[in-house]
Design a binder for these strands. Structure first.
Lengths: 210, 210
DNA sequence: GTCTATAACAAGATAGAC
DNA sequence: GTCTATCTTGTTATAGAC
C-alpha cells in the first residue's frame, strides 16, 4: 500500500532527523570518540538499539552528521556576491559566516574537530566540492587586486584569516566570553565581533596617512 | 644513599618525559577520548602498566600534558615587546606565534581540543594566568590607539584574530596544505603565511588613498 | 621500576520478542 | 519499528612476580 509506505518513510525521516540532531550536538561537545551511542539514544529519546537500527554503526552515524554539516559549510562560501564592490562583498561574507557560526555553533565545532584529526573523512569533499568553488572566488579576489580595488594580497591566506577569525567565536566561545567579560556570547556580542573582524580585515591597524 | 636516590629521580624524569611526549602527540592527533593508555605505552616504548605506575589514571596524564602545553602558550604572549613601535611589536608577535605553531603543532592542537570541549580544565588558567597578563597587553594596545599610532580598535578582538589566524595553520595544516597545493606545510610556507597575516592585520585590504 | 596476567567495567553491536 | 537482553570486544586499572 502506497499510504503505508509513505507513513513508514515519514517515521524513518523523523527518527533519523532526531538522531542526527542529537548526535551533532554531542559530537560537537565531546567528539565522536567521546560520545557513546547510548548518549545519542538518550538525547534522541529512544533506545540504543533503535539508533543502531537506523545507523548500522557509530562510524556511519558520524559520517552522516559530518556530511550534513559540510553541505551547509559549502553553501556559505557561495555567498560572496561577485557583483558588489569588493569591500561590501567581503564585509557581507564575513557577517554571513559569523551569523552561521552563531546560529549553528555545533556545525562549526564538528568540522573543526574533524580537521584537527587530519580530515581524512573530508578529503573528497575538499578536492571535489570546496577547491573548485574556492578557485572561482580566488580569481575574483585576484581580479579585484589587479584592478586596484584591493591591495595585492594572497586570496588563499585571506580566506584562511576570515575562516579562522569568524569560526573562532563559535569554536572557542567559552574563552572568548571569558576574555570579553560576559557569561555567554549573545547575538549582539557576535555582531560586535563581526564588526571588528570586518574592520580589521578591510582597514588593518595602521592609521591612514592624511 | 643519596646517589641511588638521584639515579631513581633521573629514571623517573626520563620515563615521565617519554610518556608525556608520546601522550601529547597522540592526544593532539586523536584527542584524549580517542587515545588509549596502551597506545601511549607503545609509543613511549613501555607497557601500559608502567604508564599507570607514573600516572595513576589517564585523566591525570591528560591534565599533566595540558598543563605543560598551557605553560608554553602563556609564555608566548609575553613576547609582545612594549618598547618597540607598535607595528614592529605586533609583527614580531605574529611571527613568534606562527613559529611556535610550526615548531610545536601538537601543543596548539591540544589546546584547541580542550577549548572546543568548553575548556573546563583550564578555567583557572584563563582567569588566574592569562587574563591579568592579557589586560596588560590590552592597555598597551589601547595606549597606542589613543596616541594615534594605531587606528582605534578593540584589542580583545585583535588578539582573537591574531590567535585564530596563526593557530589555523597548526590546527588545520592538512586543509591549509590542500588549498595551497602542497603536500605539507614547510617552514618556508609558514613564513609566507606569517607574512600574509602580518600584512593583512597591519594594512588590511583597502588600497591606500594616494 | 617494569613486566605479564587478569580483574572489572564500559561500549558497540546484534538477536529476538513484541 | 522499537524495545530488552545479551554477546563480544576493547579499555582502564590493579595485583603480584621478577
Amino acid at each position: 500500500m502506497a499510504a503505508a509506505q509513505a507513513a513508514k518513510a515519514r517515521i524513518r525521516q523523523a527518527a533519523e532527523g532526531r538522531i542526527l540532531h542529537a548526535a551533532a550536538e554531542l559530537f560537537a561537545d565531546t567528539g565522536s570518540a567521546g560520545t557513546t551511542v547510548g548518549q545519542v539514544a538518550a538525547r534522541a529519546g529512544m533506545s540504543a538499539a533503535t539508533v543502531h537500527y537506523y545507523f548500522r554503526s557509530k562510524a556511519i552515524l558520524y559520517e552522516a552528521v559530518l556530511s550534513d554539516v559540510l553541505r551547509r559549510w559549502l553553501h556559505e562560501i557561495e555567498q560572496i556576491d561577485e557583483r558588489q564592490p569588493p569591500e561590501d562583498a567581503i564585509a557581507a561574507y564575513v557577517r554571513a559566516k559569523m551569523h552561521v557560526s552563531y546560529a549553528h555553533p555545533a556545525a562549526s565545532r564538528i568540522v573543526a574537530q574533524e580537521m584537527l584529526r587530519g580530515g581524512s573523512r573530508m578529503r573528497r569533499f575538499l578536492s571535489v566540492d570546496l577547491l573548485p568553488l574556492l578557485d572561482r572566488k580566488l580569481r575574483l579576489i585576484e581580479g579585484w587586486s589587479r584592478s586596484g580595488l584591493l591591495r595585492p594580497v594572497d586570496g588563499r591566506h585571506l580566506f584562511f584569516l576570515i575562516w579562522a577569525g569568524t569560526e573562532f567565536y563559535a569554536n572557542f566561545s567559552v574563552e572568548a566570553a571569558a576574555v570579553l567579560g560576559v557569561s555567554e556570547l549573545t547575538e549582539a556580542e557576535m555582531r560586535r565581533a563581526a564588526d571588528s573582524v570586518v574592520d580589521l580585515v578591510l582597514n588593518g591597524l595602521q592609521p591612514r596617512p592624511g
